[in-house]
Design a protein around this nucleic acid. Structure first.
Lengths: 129, 129
DNA sequence: TATGCACCCTGTAGCAACTACGGGGTCAAG
DNA sequence: CTTGACCCCGTAGTTGCTACAGGGTGCATA
């Protein structure tokens, strides 16, 4: 599988795949006669894992760790579970922060009475003190 | 006011203030005899605006635009209101994304039965297909 | 007076996770 | 045989800071 097909299949883009190779998230694949990258099923699966974990918000470092943990099938699931829980907690904090922030924005937006900038509540809300 | 006092007052740090100057968010302030930056009230107010808008999640580009709009007190408030609303919508989308993501994480965490990695639902959930 | 310490200066490089470019090679179709 | 879609490499840009390194300044204390 060439890099373009792979990228399309993973809904990512070619540069990202090459980037992952450069930083060691993916092993360098075999090359065709024309020096094109040629991906084996194993590497395709690994990229799939990486992309899915990324869309779940794991960092590349998290994913390195998850992959290391996942590579030993006999190991306990505990560490992986713990990572997922930690990550969920971080997401919960992010949601809480954004919700508070939306409330503040709602407040300034509601206060805006479509006047002149000189009396704009939004501008005032952002001003000093 | 020296840069250190300013930074403390704004709960930001010195490097950030200098960074804002470098990228043109803040004008270069006057200098003391010792070549120390010396901030006038106007610039302090501007930094306050920037920091408050940043904590509300506006990007520096957004803030540049807000500052430009806010600088003409006679102008209508409309454009500023529209920016705030656009921004709130973006935050709402972010909250929705994170909430969906938390649901997925909850699912895999609930499915995890503390077994071996070979059968870990989290690993499976991230795997190909 | 010396000296220590907190503060200030500049300039550059690093972070995460890509994205975009420039300048070229390869391959299949028409 | 040329056009277009693909591939290669290397480097630099993005956002919003943060962290040095290697120096200067200013005030209090011994």
């Amino acid at each position: 599988m060439k890099i373009g097909e792979l990228a399309r299949a993973m809904a990512t883009n070619v540069e990202t795949v090459r980037y992952y190779e450069r930083i060691g998230m993916l092993a360098a694949p075999a090359r065709t006669h024309a020096n094109y990258r040629s991906y084996a099923p194993e590497q395709i699966a690994r990229l799939s894992f990486i992309r899915r974990a990324r869309t779940l918000g794991f960092t590349l470092d998290d994913i390195r760790e998850l992959l290391a943990l996942a590579s030993d099938a006999d190991q306990s699931c505990e560490a992986i579970d713990a990572m997922a829980v930690r990550h969920r907690d971080a997401i919960n904090r992010k949601i809480a922060d954004l919700t508070a922030l939306r409330q503040q924005l709602d407040d300034v937006i509601d206060a805006c009475s479509q006047g002149r900038v000189g009396h704009c509540r939004i501008v005032e809300a952002l001003g000093p003190r």
